[in-house]
């Protein structure tokens, strides 16, 4: 589903930084992949390339058989609609309710109103937020906020979920809740890529682990550890 061929990314500036060096990677449909490594290893750069926020300096990226390098500017939004994002800092709208936060995303994807009305409560139920549908994010715990974020990411039935430190701001128990929701989504066939620093989580779940350091892949194991 995702293929990277000799991908490098260099940031030109006062100091030239080579964030990724010669990455070759193949992720199959339905996989659950942990991306681990110290800060500055290139995890964020890799996610930015996958959502086509940036282009690689060298190499080729194929998602679903389509080259991201050849994606036209006006095609980018439609490409992103097939991907769900989950962030460490949630990126929620604080002045809108749980329902509105998810509906806002669906409206931005130009879903029809009746579809939004039907789908949002269903997705919120899936992540266990049915009771909090009219609450505001600041009235909720960190784990609950992250679940809004997950609901928003899966509302469109994406093929791929990219999670950037999804449990980075959460305590261990809440992290488990969030991770089990991600696993449930993965079981339904959605590919999940999660960048994380959470050693215990990675070790316990025994999923594929890709370790980055200094912009290179130093380890890629099925059922790996941190």
């Amino acid at each position: 589903m995702i293929q990277l061929f000799n991908v490098s990314k260099t940031y030109q500036g006062e100091v030239t930084v080579q964030a990724l060096k010669n990455i070759n990677l193949h992720i199959k449909r339905g996989e659950f992949v942990f991306l681990v490594g110290p800060s500055g290893a290139g995890k964020s750069t890799l996610t930015r390339l996958l959502i086509r926020e940036e282009l690689p300096s060298e190499g080729q990226i194929m998602v679903n058989g389509k080259s991201l390098l050849r994606l036209r500017t006006r095609e980018i939004p439609y490409y992103r609609r097939k991907i769900g994002f989950i962030f460490q800092d949630f990126r929620l709208l604080m002045e809108r309710t749980v329902y509105e936060n998810v509906a806002f995303a669906m409206e931005a994807m130009e879903f029809a109103k009746p579809e939004v009305k039907e789908r949002v409560p269903a997705v919120l139920e899936m992540v266990g937020l049915s009771e909090k549908i009219n609450a505001y994010p600041h009235q909720l715990s960190g784990g609950q906020q992250q679940r809004i974020c997950i609901a928003r990411a899966i509302v469109n039935n994406p093929l791929l979920i990219i999670a950037d430190e999804p449990t980075g701001n959460l305590d261990p128990d809440t992290s488990w809740e969030v991770m089990s929701i991600l696993q449930a989504i993965n079981k339904r066939g959605t590919t999940v890529i999660a960048a994380t620093h959470d050693r215990d989580m990675v070790n316990k779940l025994q999923k594929r682990v890709i370790a980055l350091a200094g912009g290179r892949i130093i380890r890629d194991e099925e059922r790996g550890e941190y």
Binding site: I51, P77, A108
Partner: peptide, 17 residues
């Protein structure tokens, strides 16, 4: 800008934004 960032992330077209 926050809303715009989210809209871009979920795949809103430029004109929608």
């Amino acid at each position: 800008r926050r809303e715009i960032g989210i809209m871009k992330m979920v795949g809103a077209t430029d004109w929608y934004i």
